[in-house]
Write a protein that binds this DNA or RNA. Structure first.
Length: 479
RNA sequence: UCCUCAGUAGCUCAGUUGGUUAGAGCGGCGGACUGUUAAUCCGUAGGUCGUAGGUUCAAGUCCUACCUGAGGAGCCA
């Protein structure tokens, strides 16, 4: 008999039919007469209850069906007599595929802390929470490609190893094959990278954007979806050293087109999750409510499904940086000195507390901030006519803050060169980037979405280390 | 990197102003019982109290340094 996945049985299984299932034991209960085994095979959040008659299989065999052990079970699907499930399988054949010593197996049939499971990341796929997160994550990956495919975008794999140290997006991981115990030096005493693998200093990419722009200057609409590396010593619930980023880049798009796409994209992803992952989201929602039981009412977040639908219903608020500053300046917490950093006026860099105020207190919905002062934004952003601000946009979400950062790009060769000079970015080694501004330059725009930040929002998880299988953070590269 | 908090049994945690043989629940093991639902009941094993120093007659408890984790900030996605 062929194996049937538990998801299929629970959805399409006909009572009275025989099936073969394989999976891992979550719990076993029982008596002298009958054992109940909750079996999970990762295909759905739900377990299949196996009913095993002790007289048929013997205590010795059933004793081996400990939490974590893997089983193959053939049996008949029955309407369940118990209350916890509609159907169950009455075992006719039961085989232990792999034993699991309960003295050593760290997972117990009870709640574990997320911190504990993080240290057992190789086993946490066996838990309800992480398998649910993993399935939602897969659905989101699929939805990303679906969305862009439906719009005629071309996916580009941009390089993971790059030689440009001019992107200005944070600290980078160096890539080298030089012997670190015996580094070759130049006559001037510097490291001689000409003898390194690529003949120059290289590092892991911090963004695929610059390469993405090159592709957009021919394919028009492209997106990247790849790993991104930042060697920042960030210890927060929102940062990883290795994360996945989606970066669309569109020729002939201005900032408004860019914002429209970003909003449509986010809403598509959330809608997709609601439609395709109802069971996993329902589980994650109840998990979140349980976790927040001890919190004060005002500190609790909105119920997960309600929160997701809430984002779908309204348009995101769009306003300029200057307008945001005015709102913040005149806000209660600013006047009462409740902000750690008081907003004096134009030029201030917005802190998390300010972003959170705008999103969670003032507008109570996602906010898109545009036209930031050029001093606090990247060199490639298009300068506005006022010569002070750039066509940047940040999409701010409740709880997680900046989920998207993007801009219209500066396509004017001279202006771009001038900005690079102002910001001390060496233009010689960026010749390939600047070439796109010389040969048939067009207005274009793009943005970056941190995939794990999206996952935080969609799953309601509180820590970014719990929405990626093997998180890479300072002092942690286990597994 | 900075600030705050934490590290005691496999897990979650308690341990009073320093004071004798360090506790509980869950899990494990043994048994009883039951169409069970993180089953229930009885019994049982299990701890160099994060590491290294120091103060003291006496340190899980006080002090110092370090390590690890969590939350917040910065950096950002």
């Amino acid at each position: 008999m062929r194996r049937t996945k538990i998801a299929d049985i629970l959805q399409n299984g006909v009572v009275g039919e025989d099936f073969l299932v394989k999976g891992w034991v979550r719990t076993r209960r029982g008596s002298k007469q009958v054992n109940f085994i909750a079996l999970n095979d990762g295909s759905v959040i739900h377990n299949l209850q196996i009913v095993a008659d002790v007289e048929i299989f013997g205590e010795e065999l059933l004793r081996r069906a400990t939490t974590g052990a893997s089983l193959a079970v053939t049996g008949k699907l029955n309407a369940s007599q118990g209350a916890g499930q509609n159907v169950e399988m009455v075992a006719e054949k039961l085989e232990v595929i792999g034993d699991c010593d309960p003295n050593e197996y760290p997972l117990q049939p009870k709640k574990h802390s997320l911190e504990f499971l993080r240290e057992k990341a190789h086993l946490r796929f066996r838990t309800s929470t992480f398998s649910a997160v993993a399935r939602v994550r897969h659905a989101m990956i699929f939805a990303v490609h679906n969305f862009f495919t439906s719009k005629g975008f071309v996916n580009i794999h941009t390089p993971i190893i790059t030689a440009s140290d001019a992107e200005g997006a944070g600290e980078m991981f160096q890539v080298t094959t030089l012997d670190l115990d015996n580094v070759p030096k130049t006559e001037a005493g510097k490291i001689d990278f000409s003898r390194d693998f690529f003949g120059k200093a290289t590092n892991l990419t911090v963004s695929g954007q610059l390469e993405g722009e090159l592709a957009a200057m021919g394919l028009a609409d492209i997106y990247t979806f790849g790993p991104t590396f930042r060697a920042e010593n960030s210890n927060t619930t929102r940062h990883l050293a290795e994360f996945w980023m989606i970066e669309p880049e569109m020729a002939f798009y201005d900032l408004n087109d860019n914002m429209d796409l970003a909003e449509e994209f986010l809403k598509y992803l959330i809608k997709y999750a609601l439609e395709h992952c109802p069971d996993d989201l329902a589980f994650l929602s109840s998990r979140l409510m349980e976790e927040e039981q001890n919190k004060k009412a005002e500190d609790r977040s909105m119920e997960l499904l309600e929160k997701l639908r809430f984002v779908l219903e309204d348009d995101f608020v769009r306003l300029t940086y200057s307008e945001a500053i005015e709102i913040l300046k005149n806000s209660k917490p600013n006047k009462k000195g409740q902000f750690k950093y008081t907003i004096e006026g134009y030029g201030a860099d917005l802190q998390s507390e300010h972003e959170r105020f705008l999103v969670e207190k003032h507008f109570k919905k996602p906010v898109v901030l545009t036209d930031y002062p050029k001093e606090i934004k990247a060199f490639y952003m298009k300068l506005n006519e006022d010569n002070k601000t750039v066509r940047a946009m940040d999409v701010l979400f409740p709880q997680i803050g900046e989920i998207i950062g993007g801009s219209q790009r500066e396509e004017n060769h001279e202006k771009l060169l001038a900005r690079m000079a102002e910001m001390d970015i060496p233009s010689e080694e960026m010749w390939w980037y600047l070439d796109t501004r010389k040969f048939g330059a067009v207005p274009h725009s793009g943005f970056g979405l941190g995939f794990e930040r999206l996952m935080l929002f969609v799953t309601g998880m509180g820590n970014i280390r719990d929405v990626i299988a093997f998180p890479r953070t300072p002092k942690n590269a286990e597994f």
